[in-house]
């Protein structure tokens, strides 16, 4: 169980980069961008093909991100220049990317277990430091070896990476260009009257969003040890789940707070998923169904709980007033029978 929990946190940290990308398109640009399902795989595909051909994993990961940037710009181009509705632009790009990803990979699946990846590189350096052994000692002394993960380097590396990405994004969103990007999503009419080319901002914004998504895809294939053309199915929902859960649980007071919430939301989502998968009657193939249920829950629960509160309050008030009326006028009022 705890092993699964650590695994969930590890992958959650890597998926959090994707969630930040979805945050840019959905929240900042107010553009429901479905390109994500395709660009996530594009990032993984480009990175794995490059790694197989001997490129350094670091460069391969960056190249994956760059490919995502181009894909996102294309979606923006379809929308701003082609005047295609945002949802449709994203779907068109997603479908196109499915074929493009297969072209890039050459086959539906590329194993990376024997390739040098970012993780294998860090792992070999990490092993030489001996930190794992030191971190393991307290677990051993408590007789809890079983609760500890096999290694801590993924957690550490993932945390450092996501903090870095978050900080850069926070910084960018406070720059002159960054606030213009935010204004594009908030009030396009106004920022146009202040010399901003909103079409260009949408294109670049979607580019950045999908660059993060693709970079996350590049990291996930290295983490999983294989790239698969079907890896991106439903990815947009995972991203949305992270954004919605994060904002709901951790708040959205400022930009820095919201990006932190999105990152934590991505991790929390993985943890919820891992817990759900532990249930006996749940099969591995139920994953997407569970995802849909989690997102629906995150969307619906706040609405319902508000309604129930209001309903209870109304009922209490009605009861009190009915009694008051009865005392004052000796009159009994009840609900009319209608049917």
């Amino acid at each position: 169980m705890t092993g699964a929990l650590f695994g969930a946190i590890e992958s959650g940290l890597l998926y959090a980069i994707m969630a930040l990308g979805v945050y840019i398109s959905f929240r900042i640009l107010d553009f429901p961008d479905l390109t994500v399902d395709g660009s996530f795989v594009t990032g993984g595909a480009v990175a794995s093909v490059l790694m197989v051909s001997g490129t350094s994993p670091f460069l391969a990961t960056l190249a994956g991100g760059a490919a995502g940037f181009i894909a996102g710009c294309m979606t923006g181009f379809l929308h701003t220049k082609g005047k295609i509705n945002p949802l449709l632009s994203g779907i068109l790009m997603m479908i196109a990317l499915y074929s493009i990803n297969l072209r890039i990979m050459g086959r539906p699946n590329i194993p990376l277990l024997n390739e040098e990846t970012l993780f294998s590189q860090i792992e070999s350096w990490w092993a030489s430091t001996g930190i794992d052994a030191a971190l393991m000692t307290p677990f051993q002394e408590l007789g809890m070896e079983g609760a500890a993960p096999n290694t801590f380097y993924v957690l550490l590396f993932g945390t450092l990476l996501i903090i870095g990405v978050k900080k850069v994004l926070d910084w960018f969103l406070q720059t002159e260009s960054g606030i213009a990007l935010r204004a594009t999503g908030d009030n396009a009419k106004m920022i146009k009257s202040l010399s901003a080319n909103t079409g260009l901002y949408i294109m670049i914004g979607l580019g950045l969003s999908n660059a993060l998504v693709a970079m996350s895809g590049a990291l996930i294939v290295q983490y999983n040890g294989f790239a698969d053309v079907g890896l991106g199915v439903g990815m947009i929902i995972v991203g949305l789940a992270s954004v919605i859960i994060g904002e709901g649980v951790f708040g959205r007071k400022s930009i820095a707070r919201t990006t932190l919430a999105v990152v934590l939301g991505a991790v929390l989502y993985r943890i919820i998923l891992a817990v759900a998968m532990q249930l006996e009657f749940v099969k591995a193939s139920d994953l997407k169904l569970i995802t849909a249920i989690i997102v629906t829950g995150a969307l619906v629960i706040p609405t319902f709980s508000g309604q129930i509160k209001e309903w209870m309050e109304r009922k209490r008030q009605q009861k009190a007033l009915t009694q008051e009326l009865k005392q004052e006028r000796g009159q009994d009022v009840a609900k009319p029978q209608t049917d």
């Binding site: 406070q174 960054g178 920022i191 202040l194």
Partner: peptide
């Protein structure tokens, strides 16, 4: 931030702090 956006009307927006 709104006032900073207005400043961008006459000068190019870069990566300086808004």
């Amino acid at each position: 931030e709104n006032l900073a956006l207005a400043l961008g009307r006459t000068k190019k927006r870069g990566l300086g702090r808004g």
